[in-house]
Amino acid sequence: MLTVALDAVTTAAMLFIIAAGLLIVFGVMKIINFAHAAFLTVGAYAALVGAHLNLPWFLVLPLAFVAGALCGGVTEIVIVRRLYKRPLDAILATWGLGIVLGQLITLMFGREVQFVQAPISGTVHLFGADYSAYRLVMIVAAVILGLLFTGLLNGTRLGLSTKAVIMNEMLAQGLGVDSSRVRLITFALGSGLAALSGALITPLSSVDPNMGVPWLIGAFMLVMVSGGSLLALAGSCAVLGTLQVLVSTFVNPILGGLTIAICAAIVLRIRPEGFARA
């Protein structure tokens, strides 16, 4: 029972880490970034390169973030910027970008599964059960990420501008907020976060060109349900992540894998605003 609870919390933490970057892009730009999975993969490969260069782990993470943020920034300038008025086309173009990045990674690094050693391995004895140490690290990472973000949004000028754009873009522009700059920074930040999450999950995952795809649908649905709010995202990760673990444990893992998508779809059908403002 305790293990199930830990599974639920750590799963929620991982989902939160992976979906956070997608959420801020969705919040500010009202588009779903279909290249999110590709940016996640970029981060994982950045971690791989870092590991080959024998960089310490605390340097690998910023490296991954910067790699993702750079990709994201370029993407915003070259592609996304031109498609704000056509959100469905933005989906398609980012999907195309996902394909391109996937193939470039394949051509550069090969199709093989690559390996990154975990900085922390083994188990921790916790409340009478042995539990994977790295999974527990995920909880800490999620909390730090959540706090950093809340701080960034509420405590900095950029954060305030971002919040203004989220609430009412026209008004924000009228008040002198440079919304295209906010968007550029948001997209770069979101992509950087995607890459960071990719680097963070590598110790539990494999590194291969398609590694991001299985996470994609779950992240999409969580973000749709959360409607752009970080707090709502934390809530939906907790609720749906727990549900996924419960279904996986007590029914079967295949259904468990579909839990988030199906539950989120039904929640949205019954309550279109999702968990936001709940």
């Binding site: 592609i79 031109r82 498609l83 056509r86 086309d89 398609l92 173009a93 999907w95 195309g96 970008l97 996902g98 394909i99 391109v100 996937g102 193939q103 470039l104 394949t106 051509l107």
Partner: peptide, 20 residues
């Protein structure tokens, strides 16, 4: 196979941007 996918992805981006 990979180059083909790459071409398709690039073509998609370009068409969406230039010839919606």
């Amino acid at each position: 196979p990979y180059v083909w996918e790459l071409i398709v992805g690039l073509a998609l981006i370009i068409v969406i941007l230039v010839f919606p």
